[in-house]
């Protein structure tokens, strides 16, 4: 579904990603682990198209309607419309913008892109309430401004709600588990598991093995100094948890 080839990226003139290669097929869950500063979040932001990150080499090839396109040539909103989603490590607060208005605007952009009819506010309300049940969310939630005065757990749940609403094909979850208590993490993990199908794929970026007890990956990759230094099955996460990263280098 998506293939990252020899990806080099820098921010503010400092090279962070130094040749990433990664191939993910439909139906797979991959996890990337690595110490602080290894480039995990940079990879997520480059995939999503953050303007501060400059790709100096390589490409990200993504399957769209049986065609292969390099998504680095697309604006962030174009990538999103093609089904690429990133759950933010630090979801952004947007005062004055109502969550439900925001979600409907996003959803209708996808409808427009797919040539489908836009959903009116009443139908959308029903649609979103179903999705909110999936994540044990309070009805009041969507009447509040986006992420404003949300707790850490609510912000992360809101990210997964957006994922549920937009129904992406490829999702990158950037440290969605960090800062969550065990109950919130379970709810978030349950939500992600319910959204999993044979046609979509997920890339989990995490610090901790804990999340991977709940969302079981098919592959675990270790990122260090901007390169993937080891790839293996899910048992690699346990090994890292036990021994740290130093034995790998």
């Amino acid at each position: 579904m998506i293939e990252i080839k020899n990806l080099h990226a820098q921010v503010g003139g400092i090279e962070i990603l130094k040749g990433i290669n990664l191939k993910i097929n439909a139906g797979e869950v991959h996890a990337i682990m690595g110490p602080n500063g290894s480039g995990k979040s940079t990879l997520a932001k480059v995939i999503a198209g953050h303007p501060d990150y400059e790709v100096t080499k390589g490409e990200i090839i993504y399957d769209v309607n049986f065609k292969k396109i390099n998504i680095l040539e697309l604006a962030p909103e174009e990538r999103a419309r093609e089904g690429i989603f990133m759950a933010f490590q630090y979801p952004v607060e947007i005062p004055g913008v109502n969550t439900s208005v925001f979600l409907r605007a996003a959803f209708n952009e996808i409808c427009k892109h797919q040539g489908a009819e836009e959903m009116d506010p009443i139908d959308f309300d029903l649609y979103i309430r179903k999705k909110m049940k999936l994540l044990n969310m309070d009805d009041k939630f969507i009447t509040r401004p986006v992420n404003v005065d949300f707790s850490g757990g609510e912000k992360k749940r809101n990210e997964i709600l957006q994922m549920a609403v937009l129904n992406p094909r490829f999702s990158v979850l950037d440290e969605t588990d960090s800062g969550l208590d065990i109950d919130s993490m379970r709810i978030v993990a349950d939500g992600v598991n319910k959204l999993k199908t044979k046609d979509n794929a997920t890339l989990l970026i995490t610090h901790y093995q804990r999340l991977l007890n709940y969302i079981v990956p098919d592959y675990v990759h270790i990122l260090r100094h901007g390169k993937i230094i080891k790839s293996q099955g899910k048992e690699l996460a346990l090994e890292v948890e036990e021994k740290g990263y130093d034995w790998l280098s």
Partner: peptide, 13 residues
């Protein structure tokens, strides 16, 4: 950051 957030949610700039 707010602009980027909205864009990653399909919303054109």
């Amino acid at each position: 950051d707010q602009m980027f957030y909205l864009q990653t949610r399909c919303i054109p700039s």
